[in-house]
């Protein structure tokens, strides 16, 4: 950490925001592809993606409550 910016915190924010933000957008998209597919396996995989998205949302709510 220097005098003006907490580089360690900034680094964590950037990585976590990238992984979280891009990851959730991608998971949701793959979920949509899965459930719009005719195959059962793809639909199950799509559903699993949505479960992960919901887990991400719950993590977000936890962060809000934990601060």
């Amino acid at each position: 950490m220097n005098d003006y910016v907490d580089l360690a915190a900034l680094w964590r924010v950037m990585v976590a925001a990238l992984v979280g933000g891009v990851g959730i957008a991608a998971l949701f998209s793959v979920g949509l592809v899965g459930i719009s597919s005719g195959r059962v396996a793809a639909r199950i995989a799509g559903g699993a993606c949505f479960v992960l998205v919901i887990a991400g949302v719950l993590l977000g709510v936890y962060v809000m409550l934990d601060k």
């Binding site: 907490d6 964590r12 924010v13 925001a17 979280g20 933000g21 959730i24 977000g60």
Partner: peptide, 17 residues
Amino acid sequence: TSSATVILTSTHFGFPL
């Protein structure tokens, strides 16, 4: 989604934006 994650991660890691 980007807004929510950037806001929440910045809050969590103590670098409020």
